[in-house]
Write a protein that binds this DNA or RNA. Sequence first.
DNA 1: GGCGGCGGTGATACACTGTAACAAACCCGC
DNA 2: GCGGGTTTGTTACAGTGTATCACCGCCGCC
Lengths: 161, 161
Amino acid sequence: MHRHEGHDACHAGTGDMLARAEGLCRERGLQFTPLRRDVLEAVAEAGKAQGAYDIAERLSVPGKRVAPVSVYRALDFLMEQGLVHRIASRNAFIPCTHGHAPGEGVIFLICRTCGGVDEASSEEVEGSLGRTLERAGFTPTHSILEVEGDCGACRDRKPAP
Amino acid sequence: MHRHEGHDACHAGTGDMLARAEGLCRERGLQFTPLRRDVLEAVAEAGKAQGAYDIAERLSVPGKRVAPVSVYRALDFLMEQGLVHRIASRNAFIPCTHGHAPGEGVIFLICRTCGGVDEASSEEVEGSLGRTLERAGFTPTHSILEVEGDCGACRDRKPAP
DNA sequence: GGCGGCGGTGATACACTGTAACAAACCCGC
DNA sequence: GCGGGTTTGTTACAGTGTATCACCGCCGCC
């Protein structure tokens, strides 16, 4: 999903993403180093969720190896800043294309065909989940909601298997 | 959670769980082998989510080692039969204490203090999530919803940190 | 009885995911 | 320039999960 051309109004391009990240780091007095930039770019360009080792390989060139541990550190940083998300069910990472309100829950829509991951949010889901948790006497600190299935583009592409 | 005595009406004991599993396998013409029984028992007795290697260690005795790969196979079987669940955010497994309707979504409530995992379900959440997905043009096949926080018992135990 | 298939298990090896620990490089203010 | 914090490189290792092959036990069949 999102790889069909002519439909990119729903997320900023890689360039915009990098510019946004740089501005955000400057605002917060943090360093947007070359490694962090490269990792974010690799995640943003991939079009699907990337494992840390995929990113490390993608960033490595014959003379210059990027170790997975460096990628993990960059990803930790980028996640703290809300620039990338981790997909727990895949052990993989995607760029944040959504611009979230603070504390807002995110729903990840993972296409099993194209591997793309879209973000959604819903106050309705948020609200009903909150009520359910309260009824259960549970105080949430963090929640993950990941849905696997077929995105619209892939469903249209092969309508009747 | 669930480890406070005097409050176990909310889930069946380990014995009931094993009996239910055996009956269910007989019904379906499947083998409830000793290994599968032991793995299910280990998961059920633990009181919190167990990693596959934890289970392997727990089942190993000086003369008789149970390899993790065997545990994984047993867990795969038990998951297919709906007897255990996998907690993606923890890479760990819990017994199913809930008796789900087929296709029904489950919400996992993971206590960050005691490590216990409770199951909940909510038609309200289910419905609002379904509407959100439809609005996004996404056809779901499977979804995971895991919430981390403090369960009631742990919150009561230390009211003002 | 013998034979072959089939599912389950054991065992080894390996790939993937993630973290700990320490050293070196870098940056920035003083 | 110097000291201190942050970032990165490097190595090693722990944890998670899968592939492969051999073996066993069982059941049906000839």
